[in-house]
């Protein structure tokens, strides 16, 4: 099921590049892992509600009350490419 083409597609989605040799190894590794995961098919889960949250906790809400924002300098301090006002990327606007 997992082949190089699919791994290429997943890498594209994930914004990763794999060198040719790496790609083969990754494909084989994922193939093995995914094949193993098929053990789940032995378990009949018909009618079982998928459990996204393990606790019956719900409706955790906050009041609509403003708090001061973070200092801009602090937010931008760790940016690998930014100035004093904004984060910078290569042209992204069409």
């Amino acid at each position: 099921m997992i082949d190089v083409k699919l791994v290429d597609y997943l890498a594209g989605l994930s914004r990763l590049e794999l060198r040719e040799g790496e790609k083969q190894a990754m494909t084989a590794g994922l193939e093995q892992i995914v094949a193993y995961m098929d053990v789940l098919n032995k378990l009949d889960t018909a009618g079982v509600e998928p459990m996204s949250h393990v606790f019956p906790v719900k409706n955790v809400l906050r009041e609509d009350e403003a708090a001061p924002s973070q200092d801009r300098g602090e937010l931008l301090a760790g940016s690998p490419a930014g100035d004093t006002e904004a984060f910078l990327v290569p042209q992204a606007v069409e």
Binding site: E85, A86, F87, L88, V89, P90, Q91, A92, V93
Partner: peptide, 13 residues
Amino acid sequence: LVHDPWTGQTRCD
């Protein structure tokens, strides 16, 4: 996103 034609960069706000 605002493109800055002077620097060729896009600024993220």
